[in-house]
Design a protein around this nucleic acid. Structure first.
Lengths: 188, 188
DNA sequence: CTTTTATTGTACCGATGAGTATAATAAAAC
DNA sequence: GTTTTATTATACTCATCGGTACAATAAAAG
């Protein structure tokens, strides 16, 4: 493994476990067994390192979400695929997902929070677009794409958070239950 | 206003805007126009200050949520009251709510995240208890109190976050839409 | 008034923060 | 082999970090 990758991985581990601000560059260097100028050579500065992390793991994230959100006429199937995509990502990249959750409602003026905003917006937009297209087939849903996208993400990420705290399994049954609730409400 | 209260308010403002770790004690002292030993006199250390903040504003929060979550046989009414309680809290204490959201999915080993956990758990437990009681009147809901509490909080906090970013108003119509979706799903 | 307690400050500590100039070493190109 | 480029390090900067010893000041109690 090359140094650059090892720095990314160690930094991700530390940031996801303790937060971007609480972990200093020196600690990351010690974990990655390199010195500070090496880190600065590759990433320019601390925020550059975070940007590199968000890009490195974000590519797979964005791709899986946007592919899963493609609507071809079957909304339950698409939503099922989408929930599954998020769950897979939580299982494949737990640390990255955890970092993303930590920054989801980050303070408005925080460096890390501002840096991740474009990524979060992309995710939201993919899902909102899905509901917008689905509204063509479901008249009742018209004009609600935004509210449903917000709700969907709120739901999925709440469960992802609980999974990442080892308090649940993200299995097919849970997927079914979440979607059932989302689509049909609490009385059915 | 006494110094202690001014420290609490300035710290809350800074923490909610930039995050607990990113704001140093010196900066809080300058904002509150006192010196560090004064702050340490009142709060012992930095985490003591955060604990005092969580307690100071958390009392009202806990009380409003637990009162609103009392179930007397009418679930839609109770849920409506509960959503309204959260929205009121967002409007009355935006900075405190923002801080709470920032720490909701905080990194597991972060000082601030660990400190707020008891508060978050209390909120969750009030809501889970509500759904447990409501399940006596709605057989279909039995065994789902946890999943509904998680979903409910995921929803409400997602909207609170958007409100706090000035992207929406938390009015009666939005309250209705959120609850309608929560209770009846997306097709109705 | 004096004494005690509460409140507030001056000056300081050692460690760590993000970052940098320059040199050394390793690898690639010719 | 030499030269160029890429990679990595030593040693350092100034600022800030959370916190503290002790003193000074203000307020309360007697």
């Amino acid at each position: 493994m090359d140094n650059r990758t090892r720095i990314l991985q160690e930094a991700l581990r530390l940031f996801s476990n303790r937060g971007y601000e609480a972990v200093g560059v020196q600690e990351i260097c010690e974990a990655a067994e390199i010195t500070k100028p090496t880190l600065y050579h590759y990433f320019g500065n601390k925020i550059g390192l975070l940007e590199a992390i968000l890009h490195h793991w974000g590519v797979d994230f964005d791709q899986r979400v946007s592919v899963a959100a493609e609507y071809h006429g079957d909304l339950p199937l698409t939503l099922n695929r989408l929930v599954k995509a998020f769950f897979e990502l939580a299982a494949l990249h737990p640390e990255f997902y955890r970092l993303q959750l930590a920054l989801w409602f980050a303070p408005p003026e925080s460096e890390a929070g501002k840096t991740i905003l474009p990524s979060l917006k992309r995710q939201h937009d993919s899902i909102e677009a899905l509901f917008r297209k689905a509204a063509d087939d479901h008249g009742n849903m018209r004009g609600r794409d935004r509210i449903y996208a917000i709700s969907f993400l709120g739901l999925v990420n709440s469960y992802a958070a609980i999974f990442l705290n080892n308090l649940t399994q993200l299995d097919d049954e849970l997927c079914f239950r979440i979607l059932h609730h989302f689509m049909h409400g609490i009385y059915s």
